[in-house]
């Protein structure tokens, strides 16, 4: 089967139930918004192909259920994620406070080099705001993570969020590839070791 993309990036959306994870994904993949809240059951995903630096990148974005009862199932997907978005609701302070817990989950279950990003969603509802932008920024800085306020309803910053995360993953990937090439030049044994890892991006680059 002829491949229609250059890279595959797997992203994960996590956060409390009702903060707007599914709506963000829906806005990004379908450019639409559904006002009715339908609680996600288990796990779902959507795929959208974007272009970065002339490369076709398939984003497979996993949408997780925020409810506690689905935690076991959703946690299993952390390992495969290359980028994770932690989402809270600016009108719900509790969801912001829980970001720390979600970060702890990531450190426990995700790969150590996973790219992360914090999103404060529903920024169109400023009249009901409970979490200031400054607090969001400070939290992100504390963890060395990028931060954006978004609105799935008004589509503010949604594209920017996903493209930013994808670009960061691409940057990291390019850095790894440069390191690999340099090591490869040093000796054939290392090249063999790299091939045996069978990471998808590495194999693609050889083609």
């Amino acid at each position: 089967m002829a491949k229609t993309y250059d890279y595959l990036f797997k992203l994960l959306l996590i956060g409390d139930s009702g903060v707007g994870k599914t709506c963000l994904l829906f806005r990004f993949s379908e450019d639409a918004f559904n006002t009715t809240f339908i609680s996600t059951i288990g796990i779902d995903f959507k795929i959208r192909t974007i272009e970065l630096d002339g490369k076709k990148i398939k984003l497979q974005i996993w949408d997780t259920a925020g409810q506690e009862r689905f935690r076991t199932i959703t946690t299993a997907y952390y390992r495969g994620a290359m980028g994770i978005m932690l989402v809270y609701d600016i009108t719900n302070e509790k969801s912001f406070d829980n970001i720390k817990n979600w970060i702890r989950n990531i450190e426990e279950h995700a790969s150590s080099d996973v790219e992360r990003m914090i999103l404060g969603n529903k920024c169109d509802m400023n009249d009901k705001r409970q979490v200031s932008k400054e607090r969001g920024e400070k939290l992100a800085i504390d963890y060395g993570i990028k931060f954006l306020e978004t609105s799935a309803k008004s589509s503010a910053n949604v594209e920017e969020a996903f493209f930013t995360l994808a670009r960061d993953i691409m940057t990291k990937l390019n850095r790894k590839m440069n390191d690999s090439n340099s090591a490869g030049a040093g000796g054939p044994v290392k090249i063999t070791e790299n091939r045996s890892k069978k990471t998808s991006f590495f194999r693609c680059s050889l083609l």
């Binding site: 089967m1 059951i41 796990i43 689905f70 199932i73 693609c204």
Partner: peptide, 30 residues
Amino acid sequence: DYDWMTGDLGNKASDYLVDLIAFLRSTFAV
């Protein structure tokens, strides 16, 4: 993304298929 010309013998299923099966498993579970 099968490499139809590979000569190497792998020891585990393709990534995409593992994800696929995991998805089906979790879907029917929930």
